[in-house]
Design a protein around this nucleic acid. Sequence first.
DNA 1: TCACTTCCTTCGACTACAAAACTAAGTCAG
DNA 2: CTGACTTAGTTTTGTAGTCGAAGGAAGTGA
Lengths: 392, 392
Amino acid sequence: MTIDDAPRDALRGGPRELLRWVATGAAVSRADLSRLSGLSPSTVSQRVEALISQGLLEETGAGRSRGGRRPRQLAVPTGGAVVGAIDLGAHHARVGALDLSGRVVQARTLPVRIEDGPEAVLGALLAEVATLVDGDPAASRGGSATGALRGVGIGIPGPVQHSTGRIVSPSRMPGWNGFDVAAFCAGRVDVPVIVDNDANLMALGAHRTAHSELDHAVYIKAGTGIGSGVISSGRLHRGAQGSAGDISHCRVVADPAPPCTCGNAGCLEAVASGAALVTALRGQGVPVSDLTGVIRLIDDGDRQATALARQAGRAVGEILAVVVNFFNPQVVAIGGRLADCEPLLASMRATLYERCLPLATQTLLIERVAAGQDVGITGAAHLVIDHVVAAA
Amino acid sequence: MTIDDAPRDALRGGPRELLRWVATGAAVSRADLSRLSGLSPSTVSQRVEALISQGLLEETGAGRSRGGRRPRQLAVPTGGAVVGAIDLGAHHARVGALDLSGRVVQARTLPVRIEDGPEAVLGALLAEVATLVDGDPAASRGGSATGALRGVGIGIPGPVQHSTGRIVSPSRMPGWNGFDVAAFCAGRVDVPVIVDNDANLMALGAHRTAHSELDHAVYIKAGTGIGSGVISSGRLHRGAQGSAGDISHCRVVADPAPPCTCGNAGCLEAVASGAALVTALRGQGVPVSDLTGVIRLIDDGDRQATALARQAGRAVGEILAVVVNFFNPQVVAIGGRLADCEPLLASMRATLYERCLPLATQTLLIERVAAGQDVGITGAAHLVIDHVVAAA
DNA sequence: TCACTTCCTTCGACTACAAAACTAAGTCAG
DNA sequence: CTGACTTAGTTTTGTAGTCGAAGGAAGTGA
């Protein structure tokens, strides 16, 4: 199924925004919404009515008075697991069932063998989504229209053409090239399936969670691979081919320049990704098997591992410096498993401050992505919710 | 005076867009506009009426029949020089008077000595604008409301906070730091003055002229200095501080890394700008005095100059590769005086194709900015026109 | 001359939103 | 515990923007 881009009303008083204000707790009553959105009370009432009738919003009794009539409290129906989300990683997938507010109701991490191919992997994950959604006690209690699955969002650790849902020459996913994820899933579930790059989903999740008031943001996902997601004017920027944010094969100075899976040498991914760190440490005779091991070594203060982490941080900072000068975002946040790695973060920060225009870093926030391991599925859910609300 | 950002209706059938379609010749009649915009004939008629009554549009008799009633031709009042524009450069300024369609009515290039300070320079240029506008024969003929000056747009070769019109730590403009251009000009002319970075204006001019149907574009301005302008979702992306596109101090690999005016070494500007080429050639004992001389040498096939141009092209390509991977534009165009320098362009292209994700370059256009020396003032005029139409 | 096309306007209807009036339900001072 | 005031939300009415249908204007072509 083909999904067009996020519609215009995303900003400024659209139903989507009303919903989000309620979901985030910024608004509790119709009066709040009226104040926040600038819409007249009558219009808000009308829209709220519509949202309630669609099951996207509900009344939850009266609130505390503020000196007059008590507000009729609004809430996004919680506990109803109505959105499925899959955040596929190199070795694991985070699968979740979320409610309409974007809150995680149920989630679990599953081991994944990408090399088993798309059918096997996605089939198993979709089954798990179904289990999680059905297993939600609230849903089985109620079971009515409100509790029904409304859509599934999927994040893929590689280039995805969001418009078609097709995977395009991924570097670490043998057997997935050209696979039409959306079409495959459409055959298994009868709700909309939205596919996007994992870094994009992280960006969306992090932005909606922590930075919704900022216009321009860049999120780096540093895990086994390395990628980024871009928010421009409050919306996900996917670019012409949908490959925006894919900085993994940007060249960085490194001596020696390690060869990359793409055939070139000195790619950011070959220097700063989790996979690269594992390879490099092994090459130095350190017996690590995976990224977890590397992170443990760094946390333990291992000299070799720390040096590599610093180098990785510098490399990320180098690329990010160009990005920050060019794009001038309000915030740069780093997520993924390497985000908790202090030496990497520190040298990334240092490089950024050293190499950027003072004007660009003057008020720039450089942060860790806060939302933890559920950012990805949160972002996926938001994408689905936006689509559902737009279609309503 | 403070100017807020381009309003929302810029896209999709707003008065601005109608005007532009007429200005570009894409539409000649109300029927054309209806087809192009998707608006109903009645709505178009109504809007056109409003635009005509504001003097922003006029009827110019009947057109050729296409098998039925002849269209009542529409046109933007031409010949009336109603927008002033200044494109300030390091040594010269292009000053122009343009009509509401963005066409240049009168323009001339003046020598400028930036070091004389903002008051002297801007004072002289504003006077010249007044002369050009008044000197327009059509304006003095008609002289009515239509021919009155509606606004002035100014491009500055350094960082500008577009929202306030203030210059922020420019690297090659001694005495200009912190100067409030908009406030200064507001005291001299009684129409809106809009100030922006010169690269942004070039980007806007080039996009409106040649790529108006593309969503995402990057324009490099390579002259005495080096900068870029970014179009995201059809609109100028200025970023958080308004410094977006300022890639002049991104570091590139160069051996030896030449020192930059900013205090660092190896900045793009210190390797690939016109000023850098002059300095480098002089350092090699070649007696050139300015950029014109360098370009002549390159055109003549001088070995040293060509080698430097190639190095410059590689440097630009290196940075641009990151930008293209990150931003994934539909087009990258290079303008400024160095854009006509073949060796530079060629090695930039080569570097770009070598270093970018195939997905990102697959359909990427890499071009020269077409509009010539008037792109800047054209962009400035568009900014002013957009503002005028929005205010109407 | 008549059917048909294209261009544009007029008019009625619909929609989205707002302003004002009104109902509902509370607080608080005396 | 009563009446003035406050806040919340609905209903009613009005207005602006847009569309669709119908129709007038002005042409072409058989």
